[in-house]
């Protein structure tokens, strides 16, 4: 990838990839893989100074943070998780209306006495006295969780990093509550969990995002303008 090319990072698989390609397509920008169908390089038909990198949604945030991509499409949740100072490092150009997911704090529905983050703080001491440890929060959103809990004044807990099936952690006994994404809440309910009344951390959706860390040469800027124009931005 040369600095004379704009690098656009888009999700490499699943619904998110389809919806992204569809969104660009409707704006008259056809994204096409170059070479091997399974490859990860592509182009935007009609824009010479741009190339497309098909990578996983979570890696896109890292590409934007480090400047390996100039622009990218990924979830706001993933960007905020990987950058404590996201608003300085990137610019959210447009919320795209798909990939909706809320990052929430969910406790066992059975914790009838815990409805709010303040309630959670209140039971922390008793929990520790009873179990000899702080309560555990399973999540893959480690930084997001820390920021939100600190903001709410809850400091006596421990994070257990979870890389999948987080919602099963309380029933399995590996954690006491979770921070995870949910779209309808059905999965949470099926696992006996309930979102706290003030437990919605972030209402996330897919965003078109620009990196402040990338090198913006005039040629790259030109390519960005063409993309932005096509998208009506």
């Amino acid at each position: 990838m040369t600095t004379e090319h704009l690098v656009l990072a888009v999700p490499s698989k699943g619904r998110l990839m389809e919806q992204t390609i569809d969104m660009f397509g409707k704006a008259g920008l056809a994204l096409r893989k170059t070479g091997n169908e399974r490859g990860y390089r592509g182009e935007i038909v009609g824009i010479d100074n741009a190339e497309v990198a098909f990578i996983s949604a979570s890696e896109i945030a890292w590409y934007l943070k480090t400047g390996r991509a100039h622009m990218g499409v990924t979830g706001e949740d993933l960007v905020r998780e990987q950058m404590s100072d996201a608003d300085d490092r990137v610019e959210f150009l447009k919320a795209l209306g798909f990939g909706h997911a809320n990052v929430v704090v969910a406790v066992p529905d059975y914790w009838i006495d815990v409805r709010t983050m303040a309630d959670l703080d209140e039971i922390a001491g008793a929990f520790r006295r009873e179990h000899g440890r702080w309560f555990r929060v399973a999540t893959k959103y480690v930084n997001t969780t820390r920021r939100f809990f600190a903001h709410k004044g809850v400091s006596d807990y421990r994070i257990i990093e979870s890389l999948g099936a987080t919602e099963g952690a309380p029933a399995a006994g590996t954690a006491d509550l979770i921070v995870d994404i949910t779209s309808t809440g059905a999965t949470l309910a099926a696992n006996g969990l309930r979102v706290l009344d003030d437990g919605v951390i972030l209402k996330s959706e897919a965003n078109l995002i620009a990196s402040h860390a990338a090198v913006w040469t005039p040629a790259v800027r030109q390519a960005q303008n063409e993309i932005m124009q096509a998208l009506g931005l």
């Binding site: 309380p170 029933a171 006996g192």
Partner: peptide, 23 residues
């Protein structure tokens, strides 16, 4: 009784005693 009426299961490390004591 409340849990039975609402169909709520006890899951995790906290006991019914702890929840009741807190209430």
């Amino acid at each position: 009784d409340y849990m039975a009426a609402k169909g709520i299961d006890a899951i995790g490390a906290r006991s019914v005693t702890e929840v009741a004591a807190s209430l």
